[in-house]
Design a protein around this nucleic acid. Structure first.
Lengths: 254, 254
DNA sequence: GAGTGGTCTAGACCACACG
DNA sequence: GTGTGGTCTAGACCACTCA
């Protein structure tokens, strides 16, 4: 009787909110503009703050919003394309590769890395910390693991740690014969140390790029690079100028 | 007096929980095993259910848990490696490429896709829907856009829609000269239609792979493929057997 | 119908940035 | 200090799966 339309599958409020706000971002806001605070927005839409936050979280995940504690919520610029192509086959640190070395230590790698390196679980590796900056922003933090046995000359390097040692280690790497590399991308959440380098909170979504470097028939190095998922689009090949946002997709006609 | 240790930066409860549960998963649970329900777990750890859920969400995001409404929470198997390398340069649908065609329609593409295709905003395109299945599970849903003007022969195909038309369209594509492709990966959230194909809830995190196909000096096709971020690790090159989980990384000695 | 995860509420307090 | 987003609580109800 009263129900003219049967809401067979009621859409969650936060999903509907996300759509509404997303459309508002397209039409009424420009990049960098600040949104009303969460309490006001929640009141305006007649929902609890937690529900409003669920919608904002999704929009942030899609790279459309940027939220900073103590500051506010702003409209994010389009994601920047970051080249991670494997076409330029070379050791990390070769030439000018947009990474800056931060530190180097000697550590026993985590089990997963040891497995990739095909070393004993407790074998020592050099661990180089690097940071990738693009357009003035940190976009990725990397840990590069090199088995001590792969480059014995490294034991001769003076500095026990620090950026100087990191650069020296990378320099030694170039002397090995490069036989290829291997890459994988998956979703992860930022560890505390990575989050700090990337200016994000721990647990922030990141794209984890794992690279294996081969030399002399074995795995000579493994790199685990965590890219900010909110601000980065990883590009392979010459698609650096590619300009697409997933949210721009719409439902096609049914 | 009473405070022997100053908790300078108290770790969020959900973060600590995530760590504790993560360790428990490694030591006390095996793949496929079901966890206690959320209400019991929350009570056991002495936190609100919302807080417990925040921890579980993170673990699910990292591919360590699988939650299904009405069923329960289970320990997820390691992510499967899905090859998306660009080394095998060819048109989509060529040979046996692990995709199955589902449907084909004639639509005006979303603005972002039109931009990639370098077509007018309202130009018609063929839109092929494909599904990728790996190890018996759907891992990706794709929409492939081909400007009507790029392959005029397509207007002669009989079927107005359906898988038969999809296959016919792909067959026509093979006749064009292949000049290269372009790929980008970014984080997104599943649209309602993709979520349904992937057996996930709308908004679930996905890895969006955008590919441009070039022919005769122009963009002849654009593919937008959304991969389940929880179950997939995208591999480039011959790293299909790569076995790493990000969570396996640990803090290195400071 | 019982049990599960998913959504939602209306509060509270905390950590942080900035003037 | 004030205002922001981040965390947390203790409930409630809903949608789904399965016996």
């Amino acid at each position: 009787m009263g129900t003219t339309q049967l809401e067979s599958v009621p859409e969650p409020k936060y999903w509907h909110l996300k759509t509404v706000i997303g459309e508002a971002l397209d039409s009424d806001f420009s990049v960098g503009e600040i949104l009303p605070n969460e309490r006001d927005l929640a009141a305006r839409f007649g929902v609890a703050r937690a529900t409003l936050r669920q919608a904002l979280e999704q929009l942030e995940l899609e790279g459309r919003l940027q939220r900073r504690r103590g500051v506010g919520t702003t409209v994010a610029p389009p994601r920047m394309g970051v080249d991670v192509s494997t076409t330029e086959q070379a050791w990390p640190g070769a030439g000018q590769d947009s990474w800056q070395s931060v530190d180097c230590q000697t550590v026993v790698p985590p089990a997963a890395v040891a497995r990739l390196l095909e070393t004993e679980a407790d074998e020592q590796t050099h661990s180089v910390r690097r940071l990738r900056v693009s357009h003035g922003q940190p976009v990725a933090a990397e840990l590069l693991y090199i088995p001590a046995s792969a480059v014995p000359e490294l034991s001769a390097i003076d500095a026990p740690s620090g950026p100087a040692r990191a650069r020296a280690v990378l320099r030694e790497l170039q002397h090995l014969e490069f036989e290829g590399q291997d890459r994988a991308v998956e979703l992860g959440s930022a560890r505390a140390d990575d989050a700090k380098e990337l200016d994000r909170l721990p647990g922030a979504p990141v794209l984890v790029v794992t690279t294996r470097y081969f030399s002399e028939g074995r795995t000579a190095a493994v790199s685990v690079a965590t890219y900010r998922a909110d601000t980065c689009r990883l590009t392979f090949g010459d698609s650096g100028d590619l300009e697409i946002s997933h949210h721009d997709q719409e439902r096609r006609a049914s």
